[in-house]
């Protein structure tokens, strides 16, 4: 009994210490952002009061209403098209017999490991040739291509877990393949599709390098790109306003995380293990 208790105390201390280490940077910039404008806090003191002035200043000066809007447009485009295409493809890979499935799968595997840092140069010149830089398309289309390998792998694994008897029964009644997919399989897949939606939302929202090279117009910047310009610009050298800006950018994903944390964690942990 005593031994068990001691173990529990050690476990709690470890988790508590880990949690403090994780949370410290968050609270550190939160306190900074809430501090009195113009007053330097040392980072080791709790602020004397709560001031939202930094948040207001960051919002108006940094163009974050535009940035957040642009990010939402890109996220909606990427998530919807990726889910649509990947569901169809994962269904075919798992449930239909396709000649040459192994090489096609190997081809997708390349995309799973490929560092896209190395191909963005080529993407940039392609987009430029079609006059698509500074448009949503330059952000949406490549991000779909980059999201598809993981999405297919993820959805294929959950198609696999649906028993074959379900679709066989429907087939005997004469249902076509598309009907089986939409009427029988997809309803079973809703949790998996939701988790994938959450992950794609997060990855697309946080995407930075594509936006950095494709977007030159200030009006077209995504939220993280607007933040990087804001943080790098000497004119807004005030760290408290930068901290407030960072919180604006993190907020949508944070809110989503508060409500759907289990999906985030199980998606990334089991998704990684399944691969």
């Amino acid at each position: 009994m005593n031994y068990k208790n001691r173990e529990k105390i050690i476990a709690h201390s470890i988790f508590l210490l880990g949690s403090i280490i994780v949370l410290y940077p968050f609270f550190s910039i939160l306190f900074l952002a809430l501090s009195e404008p113009g007053k330097r806090i040392s980072g080791f003191t709790v602020p004397s009061g709560i001031y939202f002035d930094n948040f207001i200043k960051a919002w108006t000066d940094g163009g974050f209403s535009n940035g957040l809007f642009n990010s939402f447009v890109v996220v909606i485009g990427v998530v919807s098209i990726t889910i649509f295409c990947s569901t169809l493809a994962a269904y075919a890979f798992e449930k239909l017999d396709i000649f040459g499935i192994t090489p096609l799968f190997a081809l997708l595997l390349i995309g799973l490991v490929l560092p896209y840092e190395s191909i963005v140069i080529s993407l940039y010149y392609t987009m430029k040739a079609y006059n698509l830089t500074n448009t949503y398309w330059a952000l949406i289309l490549p991000q779909i291509g980059l999201s598809i390998p993981f999405s297919i792998f993820w959805l294929r694994a959950s198609f696999k877990s649906i028993p074959i008897s379900l679709s066989e029964a429907a087939m005997i009644e004469g249902a076509g393949r598309l009907t089986i997919l939409t009427k029988i399989l997809i309803p079973q897949m809703i949790p998996a599709i939701l988790t994938l939606t959450v992950l794609l939302f997060m990855w697309t929202w946080n995407e930075f390098l594509l936006a950095l090279i494709m977007i030159q117009d200030a009006d077209m910047r995504t939220a993280p790109l607007a933040l990087s310009y804001f943080a790098g610009n000497k004119r807004y050298g005030d760290p408290a306003i930068t901290a407030a800006a960072a919180i604006w950018v993190a907020l949508p994903v944070l809110i989503m995380y508060i409500f759907l944390q289990r999906r985030f964690i199980s998606g990334m942990v089991t998704g990684a293990v399944k691969e």
Partner: peptide
């Protein structure tokens, strides 16, 4: 559809 996106925006750039 999935492969069109993948080939144009990942494989071709590579």
């Amino acid at each position: 559809p999935a492969f069109i996106f993948y080939l144009i925006f990942v494989f071709f750039p590579l």
